[in-house]
């Protein structure tokens, strides 16, 4: 991370940018004396922590299901998954690695191409720029015009997938309101509806935050009504656009909260599956 100690250092962008021959010769990268580095540093630490945790859990391939809860990292579980966790079949049962790796590209792609996350990681990881009016350390810049960043334009494709994932996570949440009562004659678990535990509560919070994030997406806002030139001719889509605009105003907040809630639900189910504690049942 850049720090205020780096103020006096010269860099490529200093010579080609604020230190260029026509500009006022101030001589430093920035004159900002506030703690401008705190926000990108925080983002870097939290995102990096999440990446480490998610990578470990995605490759672990175990402790992701504890009836009736399925970790969001593994949902839908389409590989060679444990008994009871594959509500949508196992079309990839031949897949040799963790089942999470089959589906994680969709939520990962959605968040990596998200307009908010782009802002956050361009600032925190790529320092482009590290903060407003703080010169970036790169000598050249082409933005999102070339490979690979031109693929950021695929965000809406990942949004389509994220809606499907959201529906599946909603399904997982609904079926968490069951309790395993035993196994049937063929060895499959049997469930009874109308029960709830702490896991269900966490999953409800998670799925609400996931939908708040998914529906507040800028691409969703565009598709639902933003692309129109005549709001007046499309009153229903205009209404949808106004609702989504409200969610969109808090997109960054939901991006962070849903990131935490996903990790928390996974951690909780990990603990249950590993036998560290039991699920407190409310009814």
């Amino acid at each position: 991370m850049a720090s205020t100690d780096a103020r006096e250092s010269t860099s490529g962008s200093m010579e080609a940018g604020v230190g260029g021959p026509t500009r006022a010769d101030v001589g430093v990268r920035t004159l900002r004396g506030d703690r401008w580095w705190l926000a990108p540093l925080t983002t870097f630490v939290v995102f990096f922590g999440f990446i480490v945790y998610a990578t470990f859990r995605a490759f672990a391939g175990k402790d992701y299901y504890s009836a009736p809860y399925l970790s969001p990292f593994y949902s839908p579980c389409l590989g060679d998954c444990v008994e009871g966790s594959s509500d949508f079949g196992q079309p990839f049962s031949w897949f040799p690695l963790s089942a999470a790796l089959i589906i994680l590209i969709f939520p990962l792609g959605f968040r990596m191409t998200c307009y908010y996350y782009r802002k956050a990681y361009y600032r925190a990881f790529w320092l482009s720029p590290p903060a407003c009016a703080v010169a970036e350390p790169h000598g050249s810049y082409s933005g999102e015009t070339r490979f690979p960043l031109i693929f950021q334009n695929m965000h809406r494709w990942f949004w389509y997938a994220a809606v499907a994932i959201g529906l599946i996570l909603t399904f997982d949440t609904v079926i968490s309101f069951r309790e395993q009562t035993g196994v049937d004659a063929s060895g499959h678990p049997t469930f009874e509806w109308g029960h709830m535990g702490l896991g269900s509560l966490l999953m409800v919070i998670n799925v609400v935050l996931i939908w708040a994030y998914t529906l507040g997406c800028h691409s969703c806002r565009h598709i639902m009504g933003g692309r129109l030139r005549h709001f007046s001719k499309h009153p229903v889509r205009y209404k949808l656009w106004t609702w989504i605009s409200k969610l969109n105003g808090n997109h960054a907040r939901y991006a962070w909260l849903s990131l935490f809630s996903i990790a928390l639900v996974d951690l909780y189910i990990w603990g249950l599956a590993a036998g560290w504690y039991d699920d407190p049942r409310f009814f």
């Binding site: 802002k119 361009y122 009016a133 933005g143």
Partner: peptide, 13 residues
């Protein structure tokens, strides 16, 4: 050149 913008939002700030 709107593709050059990497939406880091300083303009809004």
């Amino acid at each position: 050149g709107i593709g050059m913008c990497n939406i880091t939002k300083c303009c809004t700030e």
